[in-house]
Each structure stands twice: as structure tokens, then as C-alpha cells.
Amino acid sequence: MSESLAVDVTGLTKSFGPSHALNGLDLSVATGSVAGFLGPNGSGKSTTIRILLGLLKADGGTATLLGGDPWRDAVELHKRLAYVPGDVTLWPNLTGGQAIDILSRLHGHVDRKRIDEYLQRFDLDPSKKSRSYSKGNRQKVALVAALASQAELLIFDEPTSGLDPLMEGVFTQCVLEAKAQGQSVLLSSHIFAEVEKLCDTVTIIRQGRTVEAGVLADLRHLQRATITVSLEGSPAALERLGGVHDITIDGARVTFSVDDSSMSDVLKTLAALGPRALVSEPPSLEELFLRHYGATANENEKVNA
């Protein structure tokens, strides 16, 4: 296995009794890069991450983590990674500071200076009992321990789901710094803006299978732009054009999406129809995501099947 990949997963399968959580999932994280991991609830993101952490054993496929086997070499590998779960459970009667020290020690050593620095940046009071922390504060505890560890690989499972926008910003900054230091990051998230800002590559999964993966810029390129235009003439000619989808007409205002490959034909047709105001929006990750998970995707799948 190549050391240029911090995480390399191919054809991963995992069942819990009769239900198939993973059906041949592929995922890779290049060393020193930030990889986004997206999918709706229950699509298998946390299962994949738990397999990478050696908490669950894969039924089939291969998974390599920092050049090792996540199940067999768990203890050795865990010295080189840090993990923040989506739902952080701490010891209710210990303080946040104590929990951070215990977690740091479990991954190697306690770096007091870095811990203090991150405590300050995340504005966390370490002298409070964990039981009195909100969800966001519990996440901060795990984040401080993970970021202070300087591990080679950081695995985040929806790490900002309880944080306020200010703290989300701090998190974004911390991840960019980690990347600049050469750390690799696997980031599972539902926040598109966060993924767009941070991630070099994106993997989108659905029902335990990878449906889209690659460099973010390339993925967008494959998709459609949304055009909103006010026309003097009738939009009927547009409907006959190939590569135009989802037309809605509201008086003189027309909104539709268009394949990048058909853009030139569409613009020629539009020019003849007397356009007054035209707005073109590039495809966002959110649209890409919804396209894979929306009702239309379901129908497409049925037709293809």
C-alpha cells in the first residue's frame, strides 16, 4: 500500500444482522490533505469511521490506515491518530480539563502548552464538571484533545454539529493550520460551507456505497449551473433544447438548470429571445449533494435499475 494515502479503503462491506450498513464503500485520504465525507443520516459514515478506528471489524473489502491494518494494528495506529466523535460521551463527574488530559495521555503525551492554547481559542472552561457541559462544550473537549495531540491523522465525525458559528470559524482555522503542518484530515460533515472551505477532495456515499468521489473542483465541473433570466420573447424554444432541465416559468422570469456542455447552445438561443437580466449560479456542493439524495435521484435509480 502506498504511503501517500493516509486512508485507503476499497470495497468495504459490513452487515449488522440482516441490515447491510456498507456495500462496497471506497474512500481515500491523501497524506497531508483534507478529505470531506458526506452522506445522509444512516448512510454508513460513522460505521466506516468506526472500522477505521478498529472499533468494528469489516466483513469484506480492504482498509488501510497510515500503512497499517486498522483492526490488527489498532494500538500502534492509535498513537498516530486522534478522533472526535459526533456525540462525545465523557465521564460526568470529571472536569473537562481532566478528560482532556486523560484523552491526551491515551494518545501519547500531555502537551500542556498546546492544550492551554486550544482551550483559549475554543473559549472552554476546563474546571467545569463534564455533566454540566452542553453538547457543544463536550465536543470542544474532544476537539482540544485531538488538535493538541499533533497526530498524523485527524478523524472528525461531524465535529461542529454543536458549535456556534464563531467556534465553527475557529475550527475551520485549526483544520487549515493542521493541514499546513502536514497533518491529514478525514472530515465527515453536513455543513457544506465547511466542506467547501476546507476539503481538497470529497466522497459522497449513499446506502453504504460511494456514489461520487474526487477533487472538489472536478466534481463541480461535471454538474449543472442554474440560470435565472427575464425574457422578452416566449421561453418555449428553451424547452426543446437538449441539456436544459427543470424549467420553471413565472411570467417573464424563467429559471432552469443547464449542463455545462450545452451552455454555448443555450446562450445562443437565449440571445435570440431578448434577455434583460441574467443570473448564472455555479453549482454548489449542496446542489450536488441534494441531486444525489433528492427524490429525483431515487427515480433515476429505479429507471437505471
Binding site: 465521564w91 463527574n93 470529571l94 472536569t95 480539563g97 481532566q98 478528560a99 482532556i100 488530559d101 486523560i102 495521555r105 500531555v110 500542556r112 472552561d125 476546563p126 474546571s127 467545569k128 464538571k129 455533566r131 454540566s132
Partner: peptide, 23 residues
């Protein structure tokens, strides 16, 4: 009310057996 506790864990509490004892 909950009183504030220690900001750091003692060397003993950082070990697995020490943590069990502490809990």
C-alpha cells in the same frame, strides 16, 4: 451547585487504573 473542579488530571488519573479508581 456544582463546584469547579481541577483544571488538569493528576498523573495517576491519567493511567487506566488510576482513572478507574478516580471514577
Amino acid at each position: 451547585p456544582d463546584r469547579p473542579g481541577p483544571r488538569t488530571a493528576s498523573a495517576l488519573t491519567q493511567t487506566p487504573i488510576g482513572l478507574t479508581l478516580r471514577l
